[in-house]
Amino acid sequence: MSDLALVGIVLVSHSGDVAESVAALARGLAGGGELAPVAAAGGTTDGRLGTSPELIAEAARRVDRGAGVAVLADLGSAVLTVQMMLAEGDELPTPTRLVDAPLVEGAVAALVTASAGADLEAVSAAAAEAYTFRKT
């Protein structure tokens, strides 16, 4: 399976710490074996809370293995910036998809699925399905 390109995952948060921690959490919970590439793009380039298209583009390039990139974002400018980059620019690898999913649960689901060799469609579906896991 290692000769098969894995889908890459980018986690976008207003906070650099949140993005890095969610990436670490997902890696920890995804279990052993080879993991799909996951990169954090949190905060601004000068370390403030916010969103940076440069950090997002760089993270996407880093995880792109040719099988597509799934992006998960927290809210507000994080979501808007990714949507804008998809609508306007050519800074993201093809195909890149913004996944409609909760950031933490979706990141774990996406990484598990991507690491198993699933395609971008299946990775997106798994992350989106995380919305349906009720907690009460």
């Binding site: 916010g50 969103t51 400018s77 808007l80 910036t81 306007e88």
Partner: peptide
């Protein structure tokens, strides 16, 4: 604007001017 604002107004005003 898009690369320096950091908040939602970056992509919003950036889209307005770029489009």
């Amino acid at each position: 604007l898009v690369s320096t604002v950091g908040g939602a107004s970056g992509p919003l005003y950036g889209t307005l001017l770029r489009r």
